[in-house]
Write a protein that binds this DNA or RNA. Structure first.
Lengths: 191, 191
DNA sequence: CAAGTGATGGGACTTGGTCTCATCACCGTA
DNA sequence: TACGGTGATGAGACCAAGTCCCATCACTTG
């Protein structure tokens, strides 16, 4: 595969993140992002489906890791064990570099409706992916859906904590999933 | 408030639903929807934030009903009792007329990414609204989030069943919420 | 009957996103 | 070393979503 300046995609992400921080998401045109990255609008849309997607690059990879981990979990294990494995499996993508621009990314997303929307869709994507993976293990529909939803909740809480404090995401996710399970138990106890 | 032909908003919704069904969402321009409703593009965007929103009219009302019901639940009641009240409180909006074009609406949403995205955002909106309402009752953060998420799950399953079989949505929602709770219990039992 | 109000029409304008075609760097091979 | 193939890019036309601004029209109220 031929190339000129390498890493066009990464350059676009960086340019976008910077410009969104400087001027806000809505005040930044795609053409401007491309220009700062030394590219053109055409090329931008060749790398990203739309303007939003430049902020959600790795999400599909994450879903894949989750599904793989659930499939690889021993058949005897319960659904929540598989979900735990799914969260832990994503840990490899939580690099220091990702943590560096994480807060900036979150701030941009929080500032804009379109972006919150896309974020919501990505989370639903995780839930659906895990639900399907669990069903493929023979877990009944509703149990699978509940387990997946709790997993997404734990994932999000874990992500927040990882951004704040750093550390091994695998451990953090295990902890937040345990917290979620405790919350479930106290819920069911109270009436 | 002066007016000409009344119910501009309803006419726009009907026109949109029909055209989406006939030609698909993407092949239908806003100007065309407006034209069929005897209006113009300007007026369309005065009634709806964007093209998607024409399919998600009542959702904000639903969130309001949920929040109100949770606030009105006796203080001694547990979070899931409040969530049940929230779901039941939305039953009044589930009219026969709404059920009539429900399947068509769902089919259109399922056919398009932008619309699934908007739908996901609305569900997150429900979850956030209920979570906040529960926290205002003194429910700890995580328990509130879990209860709200389970509530949204039950709501969605209930909506599907209501579309299929009809009946009183309040009863249906109570049943699906009970099913979700049972699924939670079997989850926690298995390991 | 005049003035005010709220909903609409109309059109200019920006930008996201698609599409098509030309171009250019690199690669393998003769 | 020349040549053709391939894949990434550039360039520009084009359409539709969404914003803005101003004129207009129906209806109400004093």
């Amino acid at each position: 595969m031929g190339r000129w300046e390498p890493d066009a995609r990464e350059r676009l992400v960086r340019a976008a993140l910077d410009l969104f921080g400087e001027q806000g998401y809505e005040n930044t045109a795609v053409a401007q992002i491309a220009e700062r990255a030394g590219l053109t609008k055409s090329t931008f849309f060749r790398h990203f489906r739309d303007k939003r997607e430049v902020l959600f690059g790795g999400q599909d990879v994450l879903a894949g890791l989750m599904v793989g981990a659930i499939a690889a979990t021993p058949a005897e294990a319960g659904p929540l064990v598989a979900v735990e494995a799914a969260l832990v499996a994503t840990a490899e993508t939580f690099t220091d570099e990702r943590r560096a621009h994480g807060p900036q990314r979150l701030a941009v997303i929080a500032s804009n409706d379109e972006l919150r929307e896309r974020s919501a869709l990505k989370m639903v994507g995780f839930a659906v992916a895990m639900t399907d993976a669990l069903k493929r293990r023979g877990v009944p529909e509703l149990e699978a859906a509940v387990a997946a939803e709790l997993g997404v909740l734990a994932f999000n809480h874990g992500y927040e904590q990882w951004l704040e404090a750093g550390g091994d995401f695998g451990e953090i996710a295990r902890r937040t999933l345990r917290d979620v399970r405790e919350a479930v138990r106290s819920l069911d106890g109270a009436e």
